[in-house]
Amino acid sequence: MNRRSPAGYTAVPPWIYAVAGVGASFVLIPLLAMVAKVNWSQFIPLITSESSLTALGLSLRTSAASTVLCIVLGIPLALVLARGNLRGQQLLRAFILLPLVLPPVVGGIALLYTFGRQGLLGHSLELAGFQIAFSTTAVVMAQTFVALPFMVVSLEGALRTAGGKYEAVAATLGARPTTVLRRVTLPLVLPGLASGAVLSFARSLGEFGATLTFAGSLEGVTRTLPLEIYLQRESDADAAVALSLVLVAVAAIVVGLAYGNPQRTTKAKVPQ
């Protein structure tokens, strides 16, 4: 598409560009500083060491799993928040979005007191033969806890933009609610769902605090890439920097996929 209309007037005062430049530098310069710190001669061996690859693999697997969980749990939540008319819905939204502003370590503590061995549900789960603490499951749960709001926010916004008109028409054409959901609602909000999934994945990938508190840290089981970086920093700063760069690269690819093409986000708005 034509991204820049040559004659188009944009009402942006010039000084805005200066402040925007400061803002961009604030984000870009630290990233560049990190890149400058990379020990390039050792870069490949550092990031391909067994522990690094194990951590990266674990991170990708758990993030994928928690993204799936976010989709499964996030779609119903977003639908209820966008379309439902339950009492206390505002309150429900506030609580679901809480992990967005909560320090992840608080989320970790909350999960610990719920699913930990001594936790609210953990004791019954353990009696039933499920051990969550110190398992990869715990990592996925911690990631889902912090990533779910991203999915819900993104999807609820898309649902509200799409509105309920198409669903009403579909119903009068004889489609049952589940058919309407499958054939009308979800296809309409697919871009919102996709960007929600990408954001959830990115958030899961970066999750640290809740994982550390709730899941622990063991190579191949619970030590994801951020935990590996945190640990490497204690002994081998070069390795930590190299792995940080890997994480930045993966995150940049993921976010680029979600927001790189502005056409996709505008498509969320349905032509009238």
Binding site: V169, A171, T172, P177, V180
Partner: peptide
């Protein structure tokens, strides 16, 4: 009757 059972297309 829910909308989908009414056979009243809109």
């Amino acid at each position: 009757l829910p909308p989908h059972s009414r056979e009243t297309a809109l």
